[in-house]
Simulated scan of single mutants.
Amino acid sequence: MTLLKKYQTLTVVTVFAVTLFFGCESNFKEVQKINFSEFIPSGDADKVNLKYTDSGRISAILVSPKMLDFSSINFPFTEFPKGIDVTLYDIKGKKTFIKSNYAVSYKVTSIIDLQGNVKITSQDGQILETEQLFYDQKNEWFFTEKSFKFTDPKGVSNGQGIDFSKDFKIINSQKIAGEVISAD
């Protein structure tokens, strides 16, 4: 009789343990779901054509096949996974053209990260090509630590690390090599 009671007790304990185990598994998965925040965009747009204005004049036109807006997260940003084509206008209407395969615009810092076949062309014929370039919107300033090629009517130079104003009037390069024709 004691063997039967031990067997019954073992069966009850086993059933209780299995029930508890599956009950905890279910609750554990629910807790995981509560703590998991999905990283999905709050906005998704195809064939974007945005015009930015300042005091009634167009300051930039941005064209992109895809835009993802992540403005509802702690560090909001806008992503352009299929690239961008931007035209910047200065006060006199002079244009600067920017193309890249990918871009991210961070709202808090006002920095745009351009990646993949980045090419900037000024209306004066100056061209900068690199694989990654950052644009500080507040200061209207471009910069990179990556290798670059800069083509100017005066010549072609290559280097690593450059920063410059959006109109190419101020250019600071770090490591540079190439031929440039002197104005003298």
Results as ranks from 00 to 15, higher is better:
L62A: 05
L62D: 01
L62H: 00
V63G: 01
P65F: 10
M67C: 05
M67G: 02
L68H: 01
F70E: 01
F70Q: 05
S71F: 11
S72T: 12
I73E: 04
I73L: 14
N74E: 14
N74I: 13
N74Q: 15
F75T: 04
F75A: 08
P76R: 14
T78H: 07
F80Y: 13
P81Q: 10
G83L: 13
I84F: 03
D85H: 10
D85T: 04
D85K: 15
V86F: 11
Y89I: 03
Y89A: 06
G93S: 13
G93T: 07
G93Y: 10
K94P: 00
K95W: 03
T96M: 08
I98V: 15
K99D: 04
S100T: 01
S100W: 08
N101L: 15
N101W: 11
Y102Q: 03
A103E: 01
A103L: 12
A103M: 14
K107I: 09
K107G: 00
K107N: 00
V108D: 04
V108W: 00
T109E: 09
S110W: 05
S110Q: 08
I112F: 01
I112G: 00
I112R: 07
D113E: 12
L114M: 13
L114N: 05
L114D: 00
L114V: 01
G116N: 09
G116K: 12
N117T: 06
N117R: 15
V118H: 04
I120A: 05
T121E: 10
S122W: 02
S122V: 07
S122F: 05
S122H: 05
Q123R: 05
Q123N: 09
Q123F: 10
D124Q: 13
D124A: 15
G125S: 04
G125I: 12
Q126H: 09
Q126C: 08
I127S: 02
L128F: 06
E129P: 00
E131Q: 09
Q132Y: 12
L133M: 13
Y135R: 02
Y135I: 08
D136T: 07
K138E: 13
K138I: 14
K138N: 06
N139P: 00
N139G: 06
N139M: 13
F142S: 03
F142Y: 12
F143V: 04
F143Q: 03
T144W: 04
K146D: 08
K146C: 06
S147Q: 14
S147A: 15
F148N: 03
F150H: 04
F150T: 01
T151I: 12
K154D: 05
G155T: 13
G155P: 01
G155L: 15
S157E: 06
N158I: 12
N158G: 05
N158M: 15
G159H: 11
G159C: 11
Q160M: 15
Q160K: 15
I162H: 02
F164M: 11
S165T: 06
S165W: 01
K166N: 06
D167A: 09
K169N: 02
